[in-house]
Amino acid sequence: MKVRVSVQLKSGILDPQGKAVEQGLHGFGFEVEHVRIGRLIDMDVPGTDPAEVKAKALAMCEKLLVNPVMEKASIEVL
């Protein structure tokens, strides 16, 4: 099954990259705030049970994909 893991910096963590992009958008006249840059990880995970596949993806987050000091993730089974 196709799985999409979305990794974001936790809310308290400074995101200088997001800030730079926000300033860039302001430069074009867009009214925008709280821009945060994250990472999308798409993958095929064997299995047919969405709950089971999601559990596998969660284990991957804990082992490698997410650093809990600074990041959080959401998992979507597509």
Binding site: I13, L14, P16, Q17, A20, N67, V69, M70
Partner: peptide, 11 residues
């Protein structure tokens, strides 16, 4: 070791 090293504040 605890913690993480993020992008420099100045980018």
């Amino acid at each position: 070791l605890p913690g993480a090293l993020l992008r420099n504040e100045s980018l």
